[in-house]
Measured scan of single mutants.
Amino acid sequence: RIRTTFTSAQLKELERVFAETHYPDIYTREELALKIDLTEARVQVWFQNRRAKFRK
């Protein structure tokens, strides 16, 4: 699998949801994935990585 490059619009939306909750449920992730045209798996991994970055 190649590395996913996020558009600024996708990042803006991901960060907006992250500001609300660091642990979005499956429904939130799936809805977000559809909205920004990514797979739910990519959204899930983005949140994992974002939480790791947040803890640092």
Rank of each mutant, 00 (worst) to 15 (best):
R1D: 15
R1K: 09
I2M: 12
I2H: 11
I2K: 12
R3P: 15
R3K: 15
R3Y: 10
R3W: 12
T5G: 13
T5Y: 14
T5H: 07
T5M: 13
T5V: 10
T5I: 06
F6R: 02
F6E: 10
F6Y: 14
T7R: 04
T7C: 04
T7W: 00
T7D: 05
T7E: 02
S8L: 07
S8Q: 08
A9T: 09
A9W: 09
A9I: 10
A9N: 11
A9Y: 06
Q10S: 03
Q10C: 02
Q10R: 02
L11S: 07
K12P: 05
K12D: 08
K12Y: 08
K12I: 11
E13T: 04
E13R: 05
E13N: 03
E13L: 06
L14N: 01
L14M: 08
L14A: 03
L14R: 04
L14T: 00
E15M: 04
E15N: 08
E15D: 05
E15P: 02
R16S: 15
V17I: 11
V17T: 05
V17Y: 00
V17M: 07
F18I: 01
F18P: 01
F18A: 00
F18H: 01
F18C: 04
F18K: 02
A19Q: 12
A19K: 10
A19N: 13
A19T: 12
E20N: 10
E20H: 09
T21Y: 05
T21L: 05
T21P: 03
T21V: 06
H22A: 10
H22Q: 15
H22C: 07
H22V: 05
Y23N: 07
Y23F: 09
P24L: 01
P24V: 03
P24S: 03
D25P: 04
D25T: 08
D25I: 01
D25G: 04
I26L: 14
I26E: 13
I26C: 07
I26P: 14
I26Y: 15
I26K: 14
Y27P: 11
T28P: 04
T28W: 05
T28H: 07
T28L: 12
R29C: 08
R29P: 03
E30K: 15
E31A: 15
E31F: 05
L32D: 02
L32N: 00
A33P: 00
A33K: 01
L34Y: 10
L34K: 15
L34C: 09
L34Q: 12
L34M: 12
L34W: 09
K35Q: 09
K35E: 04
K35G: 05
K35V: 05
K35S: 07
I36F: 13
I36C: 14
I36V: 14
I36K: 03
I36L: 15
D37T: 03
D37L: 05
D37K: 12
L38W: 09
L38Y: 01
L38A: 15
L38C: 14
T39H: 04
T39I: 03
T39E: 11
E40H: 04
A41N: 09
A41R: 10
A41W: 08
R42V: 15
R42F: 13
V43M: 04
V43Y: 01
Q44P: 03
Q44S: 13
V45E: 14
W46G: 02
W46Y: 02
F47P: 00
Q48H: 10
Q48W: 06
Q48V: 10
N49V: 07
N49E: 15
N49P: 05
N49R: 09
N49H: 10
R50W: 02
R50T: 05
R51W: 03
R51C: 01
R51T: 06
R51S: 04
R51Q: 04
A52H: 14
K53G: 09
K53M: 15
K53P: 08
K53E: 15
K53A: 14
R55P: 11
R55W: 13
R55Y: 15
K56Q: 04
K56M: 12
